[in-house]
């Protein structure tokens, strides 16, 4: 029973974190149609930023400032947002393919930095000393508290995204999405709108990273590989329904369920020495699932329903 509750808390916390990431992607892709294939970069930068400002102790890498967690969250959003600003400035006026390529480039570079710059990030050994009130969550009631906090953060993010979507600002974003060419011809103004959306989405991803950091209490470059930190989030948003904030969250919960559920299945069916094969099978399954969704229900479980312009 205790195990089941622990599992439930763990599940909801992770799904909630992915829900935040998925909301961030929804702002970029769902609202504005911008193709960010480097979510991992913003996720990781948020995670490390928060780790750096909140960690305590004499560390072999950056950090040790010991700021409260809320400052960590803010730092994560700001640093990810700034990075997004520059990436966006370079690519958002170009065809969407260029943004996709540039974003994957950013993710690659960030991964290299995380791995190689030990003095800053701890390198492959990971970042230690991450602290905060909710550390050691598995020691007792803290896990539940943290889960509740994740849900609150997710709720706030949802509320803000929903407001943004329904506002005139959101309407402009949709107009840009519907007609990329015309929007590009609009020039500066459209670039500024796209940048705002890109920065907002990336800041939310950074926030997701920070929330993740304080959950696990330890981060290393491995956690931000393109599969877990980019691809899975795309599948979540597309499954749930691009353009629909509820869909983004629903998709995160369902796909995280599928992802952890398949782990349960492969580990109980396959012998222990085939655990790695089990992991590959799960990736294969998620890849095929994405194709199936794109082919049969590209609008997702909860399709977008844009408010009528004359109603609000």
């Amino acid at each position: 029973m205790e195990g089941l509750i622990n599992f439930g808390i763990l599940f909801l916390t992770m799904a909630g974190i992915y829900g935040i990431l998925s909301l961030g992607l929804n702002v970029q892709w769902g609202f504005t149609g911008m193709l960010n294939v480097g979510i991992a970069a913003f996720f990781a930068v948020g995670a490390y930023s928060s780790a750096i400002v909140t960690s305590v102790g004499d560390l072999p890498h950056w950090g040790g400032i010991g700021a409260p967690m809320i400052i960590g969250f803010a730092a994560a959003m700001i640093v990810s947002g700034i990075m997004a600003f520059f990436v966006g400035l370079i690519t958002l006026n170009l065809r969407s393919d260029y943004l996709a390529i540039a974003s994957i480039g950013i993710a690659e570079i960030i991964r290299l930095v995380l791995k190689n710059e030990e003095w800053m990030t701890g390198g492959v050994n990971g970042f230690t000393g991450i602290s905060g009130k909710f550390n050691n969550i598995f020691d007792g009631g803290h896990a539940l508290l943290y889960m509740i906090m994740v849900m609150v953060v997710l709720g706030i993010a949802y509320f803000l995204c929903e407001r943004a979507y329904k506002s005139p600002w959101g309407r402009v974003q949709r107009a840009i999405r519907e007609n990329e060419i015309a929007a590009r011809a609009m020039g500066k103004n459209s670039l500024s709108f796209r940048l705002q959306s890109f920065v907002l989405g990336s800041a939310i991803m950074g926030l997701g990273g920070a929330v993740y950091t304080h959950f696990t209490g330890f981060i290393s470059p491995e956690a931000f590989d393109p599969l877990l930190a980019t691809f899975l989030i795309w599948v979540m948003l597309i499954a749930g329904g691009s353009g629909n904030n509820k869909g983004a969250i629903l998709g995160a919960f369902i796909i995280w369920g599928v992802w952890s559920g398949t782990e349960f299945i492969t580990s109980s069916i396959l012998p222990a020495d085939m655990a790695t094969q089990g992991a590959y099978l799960r990736v294969l399954f998620i890849g095929i699932l994405l194709q199936a969704i794109l082919l049969t229900r590209p609008q997702g479980l909860l399709p977008e329903n844009a408010p009528q312009p004359d109603k609000d």
Partner: peptide, 8 residues
């Protein structure tokens, strides 16, 4: 997006 999935 589909090709990204195909890569995996």
């Amino acid at each position: 997006i589909s090709s990204f999935g195909m890569a995996l």
